[in-house]
Nucleic acid binder design. Structure first.
Lengths: 248, 248
DNA sequence: GATGTTGCACGTTGTTGCACGTTTGGTCGT
DNA sequence: ACGACCAAACGTGCAACAACGTGCAACATC
């Protein structure tokens, strides 16, 4: 096993289990605890996790999401994407957020669908080149390297001039008290701007994001029409449904 | 097994397995680890993978995907790209056109270069994610499927508000009489708009474009500071040089 | 014969596990 | 409740080892 590979595994475990115990991982991988501790120390130095006595815990949902996204099992995102794709009707004007989940939605759209998609993610725009029937409107601006989307004043302004039927919003945290949150202030502003003139906003959130919160508020739960998630029953799902928010 | 063939195999393995272990591949192919490591080093230098201790892992999914197409880019474009990359100085504000040649330029920029790149091509923007020092400004608008760039009134307007040190312009025809031409009217308008406020415009044109012309005029030859091409002597090159246009 | 590829040798760097002394967290006895 | 005590976890230094980059010569290719 490569050292870089092992580091990804640690980040994945942090995300799925919420913690990593050095002793357990050492036994599982057949390595000394020293090596695991060394890895955790390095990751902590990069801000990707937080060391605690005996192991480590995630730094913040947003950070871990970004750092470990390649290692993430795409299954949950694929499932969310498939469900979200069904919300997009022929001829509709849809705003598609940035992020890996929204990218998966772009890939999950039917090949022959005819509609208009507005996005501030060049990655999504490139993915939509494969859909000849989809008219793509790209919102420009300064590109944020870590999330690969256009943000900033110009982008927010451009977003304000689009009236869409549907906005598919990606967030890093869905919390009954804190609402919808993400890990970057500019991104949050961008998402708010995209939401403002959309008739309906639906949230894309795989199950592991339910019950978590990041630093910056995006919207309140009552500002959205529904949420698309995967998996079965969840405490947060029930709470959302109780507040009249559709759960797909 | 040919070297190019082996390089393709490495990229395939990176995609299917998510990693390549130098030692294993060397044993499997009956080669020394040195050769494998050399290949991985070259691929990493092109941004097609990321080297780690013991082997390599894929670059970001989007980049690998597009890299497969870039690998098909003929050597002539690569050569043009390498020469054009030398025109980009640290700290400069550069406008980078769309198209495969401009994309090759993005890939040919030094990994540690610090500068600002303005582009209306989401593909170029995605490629530049691999350059942490490059501040990327994306010009939005309606995406033209066949050329994968943003065009239209909004894009032209956004292009008019950028003052750059250098504009690297891709065209489909360079002709001593007809000047610089391209195959689409909207693209031509976009290129003109990008050129208007750039201090210097340089043309990217591999040798096979010299002496040809397309339907829509972009600029006259006297509007550009120079042309970047490949190969050796050419009738058009001499004609350009005679008119005081730099030929690289 | 110029060019590119390959394997090898060399010194350098990164990684690993162990040993040692220190810090932390919990337990036990008063 | 408080402090002594112990075990687990921690950081650091060190030696062994694996991987790395570079320079070089042999070889194939064109």
């Amino acid at each position: 096993m490569l050292a870089a590979e092992r580091r990804d595994l640690l980040l994945t475990r942090l995300r799925t289990d919420g913690k990593v115990v050095a002793k357990d991982l050492a036994a599982e991988l057949g390595l000394s605890e020293d090596s695991i501790r060394r890895d955790l120390r390095d990751l902590a130095a990069q801000g990707l996790c937080q060391k605690v006595y005996g192991g480590a815990v995630p730094a913040s949902p947003a950070v871990v999401d970004y750092a470990g996204r390649r290692a993430l099992a795409p299954e949950s995102k694929q499932e969310v994407a498939r469900r979200a794709a069904r919300l997009v009707h022929p001829g509709a004007v849809v705003v598609l957020d940035g992020g890996t989940t929204a990218l998966a939605v772009a890939g999950a759209l039917p090949a022959d669908l005819t509609c208009t998609v507005v996005t501030h993610s060049p990655t999504v725009a490139v993915a939509l080149l494969e859909h000849p029937g989809v008219e793509t409107i790209l919102i420009g601006g300064r590109i944020f390297k870590h999330s690969a989307v256009a943000c900033g004043a110009a982008a927010v302004e451009a977003a304000g001039s689009v009236s869409a039927d549907l906005f598919l919003l990606g967030v890093t945290g869905v919390h009954l008290e804190h609402g919808l949150t993400t890990g970057d202030a500019d991104e949050a502003a961008m998402k708010r701007a995209l939401s403002r003139r959309a008739a309906e906003t639906w949230v894309l959130a795989s199950a592991e994001k339910l019950g978590t919160a990041s630093a910056f508020d995006v919207l309140g739960l009552d500002d959205v029409a529904g949420i698309v998630t995967d998996g079965g029953d969840h405490e947060v799902s029930r709470g959302l449904a109780a507040r009249g928010i559709a759960v797909l």
